[in-house]
Structure formats: C-alpha cells, structure tokens
Design a protein around this nucleic acid. Structure first.
Lengths: 211, 211
DNA sequence: TCATTAGATGAAGAATCCTTCAGGTTCGGA
DNA sequence: TCCGAACCTGAAGGATTCTTCATCTAATGA
C-alpha cells in the first residue's frame, strides 16, 4: 500500500481551447459508460479513449493515469451530493429539526439519483484504496454541515450531534444504494423518498430529544 | 459484460485428505489478508499463494480462477450475516415488533463486526460485476426472513413489509459500514449498537403502525 | 510392500494492459 | 498569410499477471 505523491492524480495539462474542454468532458463521460458497460476490472484506458472518440495519447494528456479517471468522476459526483446537503442545511438554518430533516432527505436522494447511472457505476470504483479515501474526505463535508445544522436546531453542542449526523447520513447512503442496486424503478424511488423521510425524522425525534 | 458459465467459480476439486482441507482454508484466509494489505487491484494469485504458504499451482487446484477466491470469501461472510438475521427472526417468532427489532439489530451488527477485517476487506471486493450479484442474492435471504417476521409481528400482509424490511436492512448495512470504514474503534461500535437500535425501532414504530 | 490416487510444485506460455513519444493536424492571432 | 502553440494520433516498449502442465512427493489401502 504505497502512498502516491499528491500530484499523481491531478490533470496533467489544463484545457485552453474549447475543443480540448470538450475532449476532457467526453473522456469523463466515457469513463462512466465504460464502467457501466464492463465494470471496473475490465475498464482500460484504451477502451475509455475509444468510447470517447479520441486516442489513448489524448487521454494521457489530461489524465496522468488510469486511476485519475475514476477519481475525477468520483470526486465531481460526491461533491455534487455534498453540496446538495450543505445547501439544504444553509437554506433551513434556524428551522426545527423536523423541518431540517425534511429538507435534507430529499436533497440527498435527488442529488444521488439525478445521475443514477453515475452513482451505480461508482459503487464499483469507490473500492480501490484511495477511492475510499476520497469518499471519506468528501462525505465529511456533508456530515459537517449536517452536524452543525442539527446542533443549532436542537440547541445542543455539536459534539452530541456528530454521531447522530453520521447515522442519518449513512442510513441515507445505505438505503439509497439499496434502491439504486435494485435498478431504481420509479415506484421504488418514490417509496424511498417517503420511507427514508419517516426513518430519519423518527430517529431524529427520538435521538435529539433525549440528549 | 459477458455472463460466465455457472461452473466457472465452483471449486475445481474437492479436498479429501485433511492436508488439502487445511490448504483450502489457508488460501481463503490468505485472500483476506492480501486484500487488506494491498487492496483488490493488486491482489494477485501468486501473492495469495505465497501468503498461504503454497504454490500457485496448488491454488488453482481448488479455485478455478482469481475471481473465485474473492467470491468464496464473500459468500461465506455474507452467509454468516444472513444466518444471524434469520436466527434472530426465528428465535423471536411471535414477539412484538419492538422486541423483534431489538433482537435483529445486535445480531446483524455482531455478525458483521465479529470479523471486522473481513467486512472491510470485502467492501473492496464486492464491487466487481458479479460480486454485486452475490451480495444481492445472499442479502435477499436476510431480507426475506425480516419481511416475514415483521409481517407476523405486525399482523400485516408480507407485501406491506417488504420495503420496510429493505429500509431496515439497508440502514443497518449503511451505518455499520460507515463505522467500519472509520476504523471501528470500540467506543464507536458501542454507540452504533445503541443508536442503530433507536433508529430501527423508531422507524418500525412509525412505519408499521401506519400501514 | 507397493500400486494408485491425492496433493503440491513452479517455470513458462499467452494474453492483457499501461504509458510514452515522435510526428502529425488544427487553431488563433499577428 | 504564416508561425507558434495547442491538440491529437497510435504503434510499440515494458511490465505485470493469469493460468497451465509436466513432474515430483505424500498418503492410503490392499
């Protein structure tokens, strides 16, 4: 388990002209599609390049190695989800716990399901050694926002809400993932939104009151 | 995404003498350790054999290919967890929902944490294409038991409890995973047991009553 | 004891894949 | 128009890894 230098996953060259911006985006999108089509094991740089309609050389001009492909996709997706949670927290500052939770749950679910294909594809990629590290790092963002918001709503010190926030966040993640892996049919998604809200509110009511 | 023939992951040869039984077990254990040490990307059959103290040839005498290594480990672990849930359901047949949940949550958590290292190692392995299929297949076992038990306890038709069971199961999975990936320090594990119970009971109370 | 089967070995074939780089094409501005 | 920078190409080097198989050793039972 060697630790890689920090620059090892940064883009090698920044796009300047528009065509290269398109290329970079196409490669990212191709990564997702290849991931969905053949799985992370059989994802090869050549296949991604092919799918993106460019040559391998071009790919390596912007992504320093294979891992950086997955990392880039993972990063943008998780960031989007974390921002959704942060946004919901910000928009309901000062609200009661019940209302807060009522805002956060759909925000999370929507962000995750907006690109259900990406979420699904990434469950396979988040596995590698520092894929997990990325997940942890960015999840912490959403978690921190949630912790602070809960603490404010409950009038409790943040320390007391840290674990509660972790529970809510991970319950949302677990349930959403289960639905996603079941194929996310519309009926199930609707039900997820309802039940997850019930679950989180019931838990928050119990757990915030008693602390 | 080619579908492999059904026999492709079955052991090639069944151990007969005791020494080979030991070997097969050693290889499975080595798989876990290699997984933990270097991650699933850099897990190689040679490395596993080395760690197990046998030669690659021996490995291939019992495991038809690399994937079967991971699948075997995944299968036994998940089966153990599913059996724990089934057992808890069986032991509390006829009990109230609250009591039922109070039995299932610790059963699940304990089974998952009894070999925390295996659980952690497998999050990396469950990613591959039909690793996910195995997870689905075996999780369904625990889910079915939970659905039936909830239906009986609530006096409701099983159809109504299917999704509720999914929520509980996936919330347990999500929260436990989060703690596991945080390193599973003793204090956190204790808290998990408490909070997860609160969460599941609060949800069950709300969701079972209203249906 | 000895033949037969189970078990173990590890070098090497075969395949795959990551990554580079020398050389070509396109764009943007002077 | 023309030059330099940005961009693209894809064959091939280099490295890794999966898997096989001919061969050897250990156990079993008659």
């Amino acid at each position: 388990m060697k630790t890689a230098p920090a620059h090892a996953f940064q883009p090698r060259k920044t796009p300047i002209q528009r065509r290269s911006t398109v290329t970079v985006e196409a490669i990212a999108e191709a990564t997702i599609q290849v991931l969905l089509a053949v799985g992370s094991d059989r994802l090869t740089t050549t296949r991604v390049a092919e799918r993106a309609g460019v040559s391998v050389g071009t790919l390596y001009q912007y992504y320093p190695n294979k891992q950086s492909l997955l990392h880039a996709v993972l990063e943008t997706h998780l960031t989007r989800v974390a921002e959704a949670v942060e946004g919901a927290c910000r928009a309901h500052r000062g609200a009661a716990v019940e209302e807060l939770v009522a805002a956060i749950v759909p925000a999370y679910v929507d962000a995750k399901l907006e690109r259900a294909d990406v979420s699904t594809a990434l469950y396979a990629a988040g596995s590698d050694v520092d894929g997990a590290a990325i997940v942890r790092r960015i999840s912490k963002r959403g978690n921190r926002a949630l912790t602070a918001a809960l603490a404010e709503a409950a009038g409790a010190p943040p320390g007391d809400m840290e674990f509660v926030a972790l529970m809510i966040y991970s319950a949302m993640a677990g349930a959403t993932r289960a639905v996603l892996e079941a194929g996310a049919p519309a009926r199930m998604v609707a039900r997820l939104r309802e039940e997850l809200l019930v679950l989180c509110q019931a838990y928050a009511a119990k757990s915030v009151r008693s602390s």
